[in-house]
Computed example of a mutant assay.
Amino acid sequence: MFKRKLQALGFPNPDTLNTADENQFRSTIVWLEDQKIRRYKIEDRELLRNTTAIQWNLAFVQYMTDLDCPFPKGTRPEILDWLLGLAVQLEYNENPESYNANPKTQEPIHQKLNPLDNLDFESDSFKSGVNDLANILQVPRHPDHLMTLEGVCNLIQEKFSKDALKASSIARDLGNPVQFDNISFGLDLKSPNVSNAANLLRYLFIHDLRELQTRINECLVCVQALTANPKTDTKLGKVGY
């Protein structure tokens, strides 16, 4: 009874969904929230995503309340049918052309949907892939694998975008290496390891202060350039009474 709605939403394996299976039902609810409904922010979906927790039913009841479901205590098929209808409505509001187009000229729905929508974001293989990618990029893991994935995406955007790669290809003057043994930072610590760490932090602090002072000087130069040569409008001048 849900096959056509699931197909319209791009749900993976719509033919094998069994609402009598509690695990499949919960996973479907999580997929609808993550991919289509998006009632909660990502960080607020943790309780709903933890489908094996004892408190999941309480989180689900609260979710139905937040969605203003007309029968939050209905049967599983009734609730799922209402959620699928809501998801289809939201999908239609975002892209009505894909549903209103002439069927003879319209491309298949599965060709227009984002291929990522067909992924099972809660599967073990997906979680393993995210963790492997985080290990390669040396991104710390988060208990929520989707938060780890967000960190990976941020790193890729920051370090591997076109602008970042172009900037990294420009040769930079690395300067001269710092010999901490020949510099006194005024710290008398007995432990060599603690002393080296303290000297390094002190050096980084001084480096940041110098960079800040350089930017302040640049701002002063810009302000002086504006005030030292002001532009006047001689037409506004007045001679005599």
Rank of each mutant, 00 (worst) to 15 (best):
P108V: 06
G151Q: 15
R141E: 14
P96E: 13
K104M: 09
R76F: 02
N50H: 13
F121H: 11
L47G: 11
A59L: 11
L155E: 05
S168Y: 03
S98L: 13
K162T: 13
S125N: 04
I170G: 04
E91Y: 06
L119S: 04
N50I: 07
I136P: 03
R76A: 05
T75L: 03
K166P: 09
K73A: 06
L80G: 02
F121A: 05
L165W: 01
D163C: 04
L113Y: 07
S161A: 00
R172E: 12
Y40L: 15
S123F: 10
P143W: 14
R49I: 04
L80W: 02
N57G: 14
L67W: 02
Q138L: 10
N102Q: 08
I42Q: 13
N118H: 10
D124E: 11
N50A: 15
N57E: 14
E91I: 03
L174C: 08
E122M: 09
Y99I: 01
R76E: 04
I42H: 11
L133I: 10
L149G: 00
Q55E: 12
F160R: 03
V178L: 06
H142G: 03
L86T: 14
N154A: 12
G85M: 03
P177R: 07
S125T: 13
W56P: 04
P177Y: 05
C69Q: 00
N176G: 02
L149K: 00
F126K: 03
R49Q: 10
Q55P: 09
L86D: 05
R45C: 07
R172M: 09
P115S: 00
W82E: 05
P115T: 00
N131H: 11
D144P: 00
S169F: 07
I170R: 12
K166L: 15
P108Y: 08
S98C: 09
Y92C: 01
I54W: 13
